[in-house]
Every structure is written in C-alpha cells, then in structure tokens.
Design a protein around this nucleic acid. Structure first.
Lengths: 139, 139
DNA sequence: TATTGTTATACTCTATAACTATA
DNA sequence: TATAGTTATAGAGTATAACAATA
C-alpha cells in the first residue's frame, strides 16, 4: 500500500477505535451509540433506519429489541399507518446520546490538536472534498 | 459536532464501508481480510496476532479456526517451544491476500482522486502527523 | 401486489472464565 | 508461577428466508 492508502486505513482505524472506546465508556456498543446519535436528530421509521445503516430490516428489529430492553429507545405507532412504527429516544436515551456525543466530539478534537491552524483547514477541506464526491455510496 | 469531528467520522465510515465492500467482493469478512494482510508480511504467533488486533486470545482461536477451515491460513508448531504456534498463509490465502490488497489499494486511490497534487500532499502530511502522535493507543 | 415489520435460523466476532500443557 | 493456546458459554450484530398485517 502507498502512503495515502496506509494513511486512510490507519486513520480510519484510529477513529473507529476511539469511537469504540468512548462507546464502552458510556456503556454502549458502537452500533447503539450510532443509533442514539441518529435519533438525536429526530424520530425515524424502522425501514428508514435500516436504510440509513445499510442493513436489513431484520437486523434493525434485533437492534431495537436490545435498545428498548435497555430503556434507550422505543417504538411507537404511527397515526394513519398501522403497519409503520416510529422510533424515538427515551429520556435516558437522550441523555446517553448527548453525553456520548460530547465525549466523542472532545476526543476527535484531541486527535487533530497537533495540526497547525492552516494544516487543520487544509485537512478539513480535503475531507469535505472526499466526502462530497464519494459520500453517497462508494467512489 | 463541528466540522473536524463530522469529517473524521464520515471519512472513517467511508473507508470502513469501502473495506467491507471489497472484502465481500473477495468472499472475505473484513476481519479475515485484515488477518490475511497482516500475515502477508510474515508468520505471526497467536498471542502476537491477538495483541496486534487488540482482542483476547480466545477470539483469535475462533478466527483461526474459521480461516483454517476455509483453507486461508494454518497453524504450525514452533520448534523449541511446544506451547507456541505460528500462523502462516496457505497458497490460497496468499493469493486472496494479494488480490484483496491490490483491490483495496485501487479503491482507496480512487477515493482521493479528486484532490489536487498539493491538496493530496497536505492531506497525507496531516494524516501522518495524526497517526504519529496518536497511533500507539489513543490520544 | 407492495410495503412494514417480525420470527426463525445460522454465522461471524467478541468477551469472560475455566482449563491444559509447557516453560 | 507465568505463558501459549483451547474450550465452553454468552451476547451483539448481521444475512436470508418465510411470515403476518396493512396499504
């Protein structure tokens, strides 16, 4: 692997490891943490969440079973469509989500703390460029 | 989350997704692909691999059971230490590892293809800086 | 018929604890 | 006693296929 490939894989591993460590600190699995963070932006349907995570509906069912059993999120009926369910955070889930989010934010800031202001600006621009061009699905 | 945090999480997700997709294309799980790539650099002991991946020995046993059953890698006795085992790639495993590695390399290159030469140089330097300062364990 | 979600089953990955064998 | 590895058990996350209920 050349420099870019090595850098991308190692940086990605660093971020994933950080995310996993912070999740564990908050007594969450990484996937649960991701779920809570999405729900922080508002209620979502089951199929919508499955699409967002790129997993099958059945996987979402299991994920929500566990999240609900832990009191972090809940399914609610959707008025006007008796098939659909909407997922919302419980109070505990909202607290866990904001606490986790704050913590991850701080750790990610620490990760780039040694960059110079211009270095950081360049870095942000490069990431934004890559994400914009490849963000949807693959490149 | 601010721009850097969002960028890091999304970029990391992009790389992980890419890695998973390429693994699947080669009929490997991401963890198996990672194992094969490490072994491409030479044989490793079971405990050494567990340490490298940051998992328990027992997890390595399961991982190797599956890799061995699939004919990708094998355990061999270590002369002079009858407790230890050394893990090597089979011929098929070596082929799979190099094919996978080439493919991932190309996809990662495509990811940064839209950066200008200087943009890319800056990006590589920033990644190297972060990895050097935080690579060992956390930051 | 198509959509929403669940159930059943199976596999991978992981942790913990208890164990064997060797050093 | 310490180290290298395995076994047993449990739980999370995932996919596939079959299913029920509603649209």
């Amino acid at each position: 692997m050349n420099d870019v490939a090595i850098g991308l894989v190692q940086l990605s591993g660093l971020v994933q490891g950080l995310y996993a460590r912070v999740s564990q600190r908050h007594d969450l699995t990484p996937v649960q943490a991701k779920l809570l963070c999405v729900l922080l932006e508002g209620p979502r349907g089951m199929a919508e969440l499955a699409g967002y995570f790129g997993v099958e509906k059945a996987a979402l069912t299991g994920l929500m079973d566990r999240a609900e059993k832990r009191g972090l999120a809940q399914r609610e009926p959707v008025p006007g469509n008796r098939r659909a369910l909407t997922v919302t955070l419980t109070e505990e889930g909202r607290r866990a989500a904001t606490d986790f989010s704050t913590d991850v934010h701080a750790e990610l800031e620490a990760l780039v703390a040694s960059l110079t202001p211009e270095g950081r600006r360049h870095f942000e621009l490069a990431m934004a460029e890559i994400i914009e061009r490849c963000g949807g699905r693959g490149c």
